[in-house]
Amino acid sequence: MSPESFKHQILPLKDRMYRLALRITGNPAEAEDALQEVWIKLWKQGDQLLQIQNLEAWCVRVTKNHCIDKVRNKKPEVREWTEAVEAVSWDQSPERKAEQQDTLRLVRDAIGRLPEKLQLVMHLRDIEGLSYHEIEEALEMPMAQVKVNLFRARQQVRAQLLNTGLQ
């Protein structure tokens, strides 16, 4: 595989792979490290990569597996979310912005408290906008399971949001 085809086929997926890595590792620096490691892994596959049918789902899957391994091996007691969101421009008044940061943290915590499977399904659907079929491929999870997990994830997040009393 040439650096050119790598640039055209793999690198355009970097944002999606990064966000998944960030969801799992919970830390931007670690997510970037993971992404680099995944790319090296993919690079080593050489031309075999070009034979893969659904390259995107496959890349998501490799990223997921790699990050989960990474997190498990580290076995952190507390997963800490750094405030990466602050870097995103958000067109609002400073007070509204501060308030927004607070509520966003609540939403993030609510999602962060979901079991891993539910978190991943919700991330891929609600943030990445993948179809059920794509999620099925990426997570190696039967479609019925994808739907059930998504349903549970949304229900649990809703319950948490209504409980914490976001007004």
């Binding site: 944002d15 966000r19 992404l35 927004q100 966003l104 939403v107 993030r108 999602i111 609600d126």
Partner: peptide
């Protein structure tokens, strides 16, 4: 909004 902001995250 959280979903939308998360979509903007980039390395």
């Amino acid at each position: 909004s959280f979903f939308q902001i998360e979509q903007l995250q980039q390395p």
